[in-house]
Nucleic acid binder design. Structure first.
Lengths: 205, 205
DNA sequence: GAAATATTTGACCTGATGGTCAAAGGGACG
DNA sequence: CGTCCCTTTGACCATCAGGTCAAATATTTC
């Protein structure tokens, strides 16, 4: 479907341009709402030229999601069994919030996909993502059982962290509609709120 | 744009059918991803007949969102200054979670809209929603200042409640991909988790 | 029960959109 | 400097989708 390895310099450059443009367009309008013309224009290429590098609109989307999944999981992977449990989890919250701040398009890309039933990444969710989450949930469960953090349902704790952090990327329009526009202050306030909140909720008695 | 008041019985019935069908289709595929044919078929009407009741696809979407906004805000409006602060907030969390459980399509409809920048409900967000949120944030701020709940940023507390509860409707595909399918157990687990979590995080020292 | 009004629909129109193709342009290498 | 292969594109095609319309069919009203 998609050529496995870019060969020439030009191929590498143009494939990257296309993926960058597609990220912009897909994350803003969703898969169905995005058009090849928009992507081509954003990439500075003609539509047939885009289709020279990717066999279809669908292939672009798949390549994007696939290439981004690992980046998206990295912060969770970094959860360290050797660290202080509460601080590890708080760090995870802040890392995810940073990602929402610095990579909102990536966050929205996934949000668009998942809201509509994740038809194109079902396998990735039920495979690698689930495996990683289960592993880290096990770690959190140990922390809880040994009394090093409060007794919480690990999976739902992870969901809450995803929800509260990605919210600032995915629903930015709502946040800014309610709080007014800002150049990052909302993220700083959110960081302060979430840090205090999770520390309180997770610290053992 | 849209006839203000349905007159005949048939009009009322068919307009309702169309809105029900549109809720189903829009919430699953997003505005751009939904087609009039899909809506017409789901409503059991022909496409021209659908357009006899609503002047355009856009008009259907606007009517839907407008009609649902008040329902969506009701739980927040119910936050009672006279109640016990922590329990009022926990009740709000559970009410919102119930809505995510019982009205997932409505939740996804808004999610789809907001993720893509809320182009069609910007006014509703900056108007009625913002007003209500500011009012209730004031109430929460008083509770915090008088030491009846922990000291938290009220707006971000509200965002966290929206995020953690709507997550189970909006990102259901992900939740079920990770936890496996369920007939509601996830919601029960989430209710237990969120209750304990918010009670812990909000209870004054 | 006939006239007036409301509802329904098949056929059609138009623009948008994903995708194709043959031909032209450009660069690397002998 | 000519050949070969990679890259680019203008022109085109087919399908889909939102929307229109006039004619047909119910329904209401008098």
């Amino acid at each position: 479907m998609t050529p496995p390895a870019p060969k020439t310099r030009i191929q590498k450059r143009n494939r990257e341009r296309i993926l960058e443009a597609a990220l912009e367009v897909f994350s803003t309008h969703g898969f169905r709402g995005a058009t090849l013309d928009q992507i081509a224009q954003a990439a500075g290429l003609s539509k047939p030229n885009v289709l020279y590098y990717f066999s279809s609109k669908d292939a672009i989307h798949v390549a994007l999601l696939g290439g981004l999944m690992e980046t998206w999981l990295a912060p969770l992977r970094a959860l360290d069994p050797a660290g202080d449990p509460v601080e590890e989890l708080v760090s995870y919250v802040l890392l995810k919030l940073d990602m929402a701040r610095n990579f909102p398009r990536e966050s929205r890309l996934f949000a668009n996909e998942i809201v509509q039933g994740a038809p194109r990444i079902e396998d990735q969710i039920k495979g690698p993502l689930r495996t990683l989450v289960d592993e880290k949930a096990g770690l959190i469960a140990e922390w809880a059982q040994s009394g090093r953090i409060a007794d919480v349902n690990p999976h739902h704790l992870i969901f809450s962290i995803w929800a509260t952090t990605q919210h600032y990327a995915d629903f930015d329009a709502q946040v800014q509609g309610i709080l007014g526009p800002s150049k990052g202050r909302h993220f700083e306030d959110a960081a302060a709120f979430l840090t205090a909140f999770y520390r309180r909720a997770l610290s053992p008695d």
